[in-house]
């Protein structure tokens, strides 16, 4: 099994504030990893370092053969291999669902409009929103917008998908429909790093759980660490989450 993402002693500072204090973990191709931890523990920052939305001050990150901290890194090539879905969906409001999905296919992969459309259609079907192809984001519910955002990333056929609390803005019913899409993906063999507070999802879909605390990887293991935590911090965290 090949390593898809590897963080080694990653240090990230915002000015004086050290947010990641030597974070290391490895994720194999096809693995689904849930990244959990208190607010402010550095989960989002860790994800954002992986596709270089943040630059790191120390350590190294390797993603599908790209060295992220290498000054000669081709950032766009790195990002072609990584899909990212955000808590606030971040669909482009002036574009239809189809245009949102087709944009990167055309601009980054250089597809013609009709080619991109043929790619967009089945991906949208996969998230169950074929009939919304010509809608604008503001005409969709939050759950639908998030599913379009997932489809937009998927259409690029990334090797790794990053999810940053993608259901936190949604009510339970809409959360369910988004999580189902993600569980489908997980079953399909996608490599996924999922920052989440949905412990149910973590238990069902994750091969592995990484618990971060104060900018460090505090505890890691199979989904069973959620019901049987080893460190007092994770114990307390799980008690709060319930």
């Amino acid at each position: 099994m090949s390593v898809a993402v590897k963080l080694t002693n990653v240090v990230k500072r915002f000015g004086e504030l050290e947010v990641l204090k030597g974070v290391s973990f490895e994720i194999n191709s096809g693995e689904v990893v849930a990244l959990i931890g208190q607010s402010g523990s550095g989960k989002s920052t860790a994800l954002r370092c992986i596709n270089q939305l943040e630059t790191i001050q120390g350590g190294s990150i390797e993603v599908c053969g790209h060295r992220v901290e290498d000054p000669k890194l081709d950032v766009r090539a790195l990002r072609r291999d990584i899909g990212m879905v955000f808590q606030s969906y971040n669909l482009f409001p002036h574009m239809t669902v189809a245009q949102n999905i087709m944009l990167a296919l055309r601009r980054v992969k250089g597809m013609r409009k009709d080619e991109a459309y043929e790619v967009a259609k089945p991906v949208l079907a996969k998230v169950g929103l074929s009939e919304k192809i010509d809608s604008y984001p503001e005409q969709l519910s939050g759950g639908q917008q998030q599913r379009v955002a997932i489809a937009r990333s998927l259409a690029m056929q990334p090797k790794v998908m990053l999810f940053d609390e993608v259901t936190s803005a949604l009510d339970p019913k809409l959360t369910g429909e988004v999580l189902r899409v993600m569980e489908d993906l997980a079953r399909g063999g996608m490599t996924m790093i999922v920052v989440t507070h949905e412990m149910g999802f973590a238990k069902r879909a994750a091969n592995r759980v990484i618990y971060m605390h104060t900018g460090k990887v505090w505890e890691t293991g199979g989904a069973d660490i959620l019901s049987n935590p080893q460190t007092p911090e994770l114990k307390e965290f799980m008690a709060e989450e319930l």
Partner: peptide
Amino acid sequence: PSQIEAAQALGLSKFQIYRDI
């Protein structure tokens, strides 16, 4: 700024982000 980040994450270039996003 989250619009720009979404576009960056999709691999768009700086020029494309200015023009399209």
